[in-house]
């Protein structure tokens, strides 16, 4: 049982949906993003997705791209991302942290070394966008063996034939990408998402969280209503990009979390 499994068990006991928030580590600088991260649980966030900055985020729209560039320009690295998670862990031993990013920084560090360091920093799960099931031996299987969840993405192009392959080595939860496209680009609709989630639920008991295109409390409520929870990323990152004070960013996050929790 990871913190992620515990969180979903507790939410289920309360009949509550999960609210997952994404921020980019080191955006706009290390201190600011740690302060935001530390405030997320208080704003109602159940699971934190912490982005690892990367120069070439191929699945991300301009909002997350720019967040990564700001973080890198401010000197953020994979090591500092892990340090940030460790600093957060000192004050919070309950909220799951999922690292989200691309494979190269992890590969560059060495998978075994990365897993040891990530585990020590209190990381609970990984979402690595450019590692499909076909490349499971790279990181997915070693991560699961190290006791970490490996959270897979399913998308509208994941048909019934392919779904079992996607579900096979997924743990913690499944991240359903509500649109074909990049982060922060198009709007997701609960009507389109509902049958897709039902299709996945018919094939697996794993919690299904829906993201991409969720940007308001109303949308968070609607989307969470047809799944086990929802993720918001670009809308939160936009607030940080606009230079809003941390308290204001967290107040915005709270409206989204409240929306998801009303579902």
């Amino acid at each position: 049982m990871t913190r992620i499994d515990d969180t979903f068990a507790a939410l289920k006991a309360d009949s509550k949906k999960a609210f997952v928030a994404y921020i980019m580590a080191g955006d706009t600088d290390e201190a600011t993003s740690l302060e935001v991260m530390q405030g997320l649980p208080g704003a109602g966030v159940d699971i934190i997705e912490l982005g690892i900055p990367f120069t070439d985020p191929m699945a991300d729209g301009p909002t997350i791209q720019l967040a990564g560039q700001r973080a890198l320009a401010a000197g953020m690295t994979l090591q500092k991302t892990l340090d940030m998670a460790a600093a957060f862990r000192k004050g919070d031993d309950k909220t799951p942290i999922v690292l989200m990013g691309y494979y190269n920084p992890i590969y560059n560090r060495g998978v075994d070394k990365f897993l040891v360091d990530a585990k020590a920093a209190g990381i609970d799960g990984l979402i690595v966008v450019d590692l499909p099931p076909e490349e499971d031996e790279e990181l997915c299987l070693p991560a699961q063996a190290a006791g970490m969840n490996f959270i897979r993405l399913a998308t509208p192009t994941t048909d019934d034939k392919r779904l079992p392959k996607v579900l096979q080595n997924t743990s913690g939860f499944l991240y359903y990408v509500s649109i074909t496209g990049i982060t922060g680009a198009a709007e997701a609709s609960a009507e389109d998402v509902a049958p897709e989630v039902a299709r996945i639920k018919a094939a697996s008991d794993i919690p299904v969280i829906v993201g991409f295109g969720v940007n308001t409390p109303e949308k968070a409520q609607a989307i969470a209503g047809v799944a086990d929870g929802t993720v918001v990323g670009s809308a939160i990152v936009s607030q940080i990009a606009a230079g809003k004070p941390v308290a204001e960013v967290l107040a915005f996050v709270k409206t989204l979390a409240d929306g998801a929790h009303r579902a």
């Binding site: 191929m58 699945a59 494979y103 966008v129 450019d130 590692l131 499909p132 099931p133 076909e134 490349e135 897979r152 993405l153 399913a154 998308t155 509208p156 192009t157 994941t158 048909d159 392919r162 996607v166 990408v177 074909t180």
Partner: peptide, 20 residues
Amino acid sequence: EKGRFGDFGGRFVSETLMPL
């Protein structure tokens, strides 16, 4: 069959592109 030349190559793409 995995698209590898020795260690190199492979299919490191997002799930959306994998079926394509």
